[in-house]
């Protein structure tokens, strides 16, 4: 571990919805310029965790530090400037369905830069090409398949050259080939853009392939973290059951 300020750090973050405690004094430090993958059960608070990182949800207690700055007490307007460091790919891509593909990808540029229409067009076309969708700019999101929508979502997330890219279950609901393609794109995102990637997933196989670091979220806490190899050899029965995908064990199916 270096003495640098970590890019993303959560300190004793708790969050409840009603009586249900989703995050329980969770501590987490993510590594810069790496593919960080957070695994855990569906409905186990992974999405809640990622929404805390980008300030869509506020913790009941604890601190969320982005490059050393606590974003939990920030007002909406100061949050907006922090958020420009981020790109996010949503679970269902969350493309604006009244816009074309091109307009979707161009949206952050139109909002936050003073680039000319031609410059924007060139950037958008380049980004679409890099996710393998050149020439699709004129289509509406409803005309695309799930995998294509996600790739457009990724192009949109990357168009502002963010330092941190968040992926909310990027491969859920996709066929194996498309999943592999998306995983490739995550790796390329890290390498070509030098971004810190934070991925939420329950796809163990792919996680083992592309992760630099894996963090396992269980019962509101991070119970294991390490390289794929370390996680694979982890001693804890909960982690072992999850990694191997067994129905019997300490994790109860309800």
């Amino acid at each position: 571990m270096s003495n640098e300020i970590p890019i993303i750090e959560l300190e004793k973050v708790s969050k409840s919805f009603g009586l249900f405690k989703v995050l329980d004094e969770l501590d987490l430090v993510l590594e810069k310029d790496k593919v960080n993958i957070i695994i855990g059960r569906s409905g186990g608070g992974k999405s809640v965790l990622i929404k805390h990182i980008i300030g869509l949800l506020k913790p009941d207690s604890g601190r969320v530090l982005i490059q050393g700055q606590d974003i939990a007490p920030l007002k909406e307007r100061s949050l907006a400037s922090v958020r420009r460091k981020f790109g996010m790919l949503f679970q269902e891509a969350a493309l604006f369905d009244s816009f074309t593909v091109e307009e979707n990808v161009a949206f952050p540029l139109r909002e936050h830069t003073s680039k000319s229409i031609r410059e924007i067009q060139e950037t958008v076309e380049a980004r679409l090409a890099s996710v393998g969708l050149s020439g699709m700019g004129g289509k509406m999101p409803s005309e695309l398949s799930g995998g294509m929508r996600k790739r457009v979502g990724l192009a949109r997330a990357l168009v502002m050259d963010p330092q941190i890219v968040l992926f909310d279950e990027p491969t859920s609901g996709l066929d194996p080939v498309m999943s592999a393609a998306i995983n490739d794109l995550i790796l390329r995102t890290q390498r070509e853009f030098g971004a810190t990637c934070v991925v939420i997933s329950h796809d163990i196989e792919a996680t083992m392939k592309i992760a630099d670091r894996i963090y396992m979220l269980y019962n509101g806490k991070i119970i294991a973290m390490g390289t794929p190899r370390e996680i694979r050899d982890w001693d804890d029965p909960v982690v072992r059951q999850f990694i191997r995908g067994e129905a019997d064990g300490p994790i109860k199916v309800n």
């Binding site: 980008i54 869509l56 949503f90 604006f96 949206f107 952050p108 909002e111």
Partner: peptide
């Protein structure tokens, strides 16, 4: 619909109120 398909969150994340 924009809310349930996370398009409202997407706006927020892209720093648009």
């Amino acid at each position: 619909t924009m809310r349930v398909t996370e398009q409202v969150d997407a706006l927020t994340v892209m720093a648009v109120n």
